[in-house]
Design a binder for these strands. Structure first.
Lengths: 222, 222
DNA sequence: TAGATTGTTAATCGATTAACAATC
DNA sequence: TAGATTGTTAATCGATTAACAATC
């Protein structure tokens, strides 16, 4: 049983619309049609309409959608207008990078503390966020009612840390480790699969080279 | 016309199998069945078989697959056994994080130089990789026959830098900026859509809260 | 009004899952 | 051998695209 009837593919496209619309607004554009969005983002215009429809935003025939309305509707639909506190575990390269991002508050997430198992890192401040010993996570998470965990630890530690997070009341995990976490299915896990992305890139490049090589050998003759 | 007949969903799952298999090998396990992989990674066993089939690897009835064979087949299929040089542009938070990753060489990519528009960053070394002025990109890319570009610049600079990359001979771009790049369709673009990921997470969490609240109000009575 | 655009219903397409024969 | 597992073909499911009526 799916809790949310909205297709995941739609959820993934909405942020892309959102950032495009922000840019339009910055340029002062007030109206936009589904077809224009589609062309700009490489999505079929019917698909754009369906995606926007789930947010409840309505356009006017012959006129299009108000950029402001769309932005507000997407924000509300994704709950990006309510910022939730998040704890990050793993203050390594990726963790440090995420702590430096400004844009996540606009996407409903504020990283309020970071944790690390290494005493070398704990005690420091990174990008203005304190790095604490990971032992302090459970107590603090509970006291501050933090329900979002960001997981940027090495793959071999990820499962253990994730379990600690869930035991501390975390309900959603943004996982950067290249493993599939085994957790109660009530926990929301969203993977950032960097290696999946690299796999697609590498394969496409290889296929492209192969077909280019094939063309060249035809051109050169048998 | 699709150049590669293999579904993208399959390409995205293969790296996940790959990392799981690496862990098995480390533990000394020599054989594995599609069903076991499926249980561990949350994929239907038939799907696992189809995915593995595209790599050309074969298993034996009643026995399963040799872990070694699968690893080798996936590596070859994704061309991860041939490492390509890559240039990174944007030595900010995310760029720095990627320069620190050890695992990308195993995924076919070696970052050999970084570039940045800011004179403050250019000239430094980050994680042992030199950061050069972005003006040097075109000439160096051509001379070194670099065809992979990693794009970690702010959103507003991404389109321009991507065009510069393509003009310099780059054939595939790993894009971390939250915009849809408009480039010739011969260019392979692979987006790491952090905000799409956050959108899904935020929405799921909101839906979960809503249904929890609904349950509570029923329990409390009308 | 005419026609551009929306929003919805129907058709198509592709990916996932089910069923089952092959085989070690 | 019996049965666990593979690999393939058929059925189902869900997402995308096409068709079209509604409307400003």
């Amino acid at each position: 049983m799916r809790v949310d009837s909205v297709p995941e593919a739609t959820l993934r496209r909405l942020p892309s619309y959102y950032h495009y619309l922000l840019r339009l607004r910055e340029k002062g554009q007030e109206l936009i049609s589904a077809a224009q969005i589609g062309v700009a983002l490489g999505v079929h215009h019917t698909q754009v309409r369906k995606d926007l429809a789930v947010t409840g935003s309505q356009g006017r025939p012959k006129v299009g959608h108000r950029v402001d309305d769309l932005i507000a509707s997407i924000e509300e639909f994704l709950n990006w207008n309510n910022v939730s506190d998040a704890f990050l575990v793993g203050a390594g390269h990726m963790g440090t990078a995420l702590l430096g991002y400004e844009g996540f508050e606009r996407a409903g997430v504020r990283i309020v503390a970071a944790f690390d198992a290494s005493p070398r890192r704990a005690g420091k401040k990174i990008q203005g966020v304190s790095v604490l010993p990971v032992e302090k996570f459970p107590d603090l998470a509970r006291r501050m009612h933090v329900v979002i965990g960001i997981l940027t630890v090495p793959a071999e530690d990820a499962q253990g840390v994730a379990e600690m997070m869930v035991a501390s009341g975390i309900q959603a995990i943004w996982n950067f480790a290249p493993i599939v976490l085994e957790l109660p299915e009530t926990v929301i896990v969203e993977d950032v699969a960097l290696y999946s992305s690299l796999g697609v890139l590498s394969r496409r490049l290889a296929v492209r080279r192969k077909s280019a090589a094939a063309r060249d050998s035809v051109r050169a003759g048998p």
